[in-house]
Design a protein around this nucleic acid. Structure first.
Lengths: 126, 126
DNA sequence: TTAACATATCACAATATCATGATATGATAA
DNA sequence: TTATCATATCATGATATTGTGATATGTTAA
């Protein structure tokens, strides 16, 4: 670990301001993280997983594609609630759907969604 | 796909209430999802990722362990904001820390955190 | 002791999110 | 046409979360 002292004493490693190594560290890590816009977008994406109703829908769709009324019934939630959350899931590219007559059959957009859901579940269950 | 009609006509597959197959589906998928308490816990966990400041901290710590003042400096955020978000991250078992004199050096608790962050980032960048 | 520093906690106004009732749309059937 | 069903959208009050100023704690040094 490289470090430059700005005085003659052998300083304690705990001090923040007198060690240039902290500046080095800060400079180094700053370069390796995404930019502001990406953090905003990513947080919007993860926000979707931060609601139990939406997670339930994701969980159901990770088992099998379903129409809205089946989701309502399986979760014992009213249709407005489910439809509203499906709108949010759609807008955030978490689920897609195809119309089949009067019905809309929903499914997860891609494997990332299922993966994130499952790793999260693993984390809380361990 | 098994289905039982409750009348004599050859019904259209789009109808919801007259097809027992929907009941079958609902019964089947209900058995394969976690229970209410787990969904609550999981949503609390994912909520943490749904804030740009917390994501930035997670992102920094996925590069290298850091003390609070370095995080403040790297993110150009005031100390209260960072400390508050670190408290939330700690309370949710996302980060841990060890005291080193006056300083507190933070790190991610386990690989699940980094994994979820990276899969999410991959998802929004594709 | 006092001072300086790193970090944590408290309190609060601004903002965001939630579930849901009311209502609209669009498709099928009579 | 009218009725019914599946789904979507709008509006709203209740609740939760945000960043931050003020302040507290705890460590080191003089």
């Amino acid at each position: 670990m490289e470090m430059k002292s700005n005085n003659l004493e052998n300083q304690n490693d705990d001090m923040c301001e007198i060690y240039d190594s902290h500046e080095d560290v800060v400079g180094r890590v700053k370069e390796r993280i995404p930019d502001e816009a990406e953090f905003i977008e990513l947080s919007e994406f993860f926000k979707i997983f931060g609601n139990p109703t939406r997670l339930k829908i994701i969980s159901l769709l990770s088992v099998e594609d379903l129409c809205v009324c089946d989701i309502c019934e399986a979760l014992e939630l009213n249709q407005t609630t489910v439809s509203n959350q499906l709108r949010i899931l759609r807008a955030n590219n978490i689920v897609k759907y195809q119309k089949e007559g009067k019905m809309a059959r929903y499914s997860l957009t891609d494997l990332h969604i299922e993966m994130i859901y499952k790793v999260g579940l693993e984390h809380i269950l361990e």
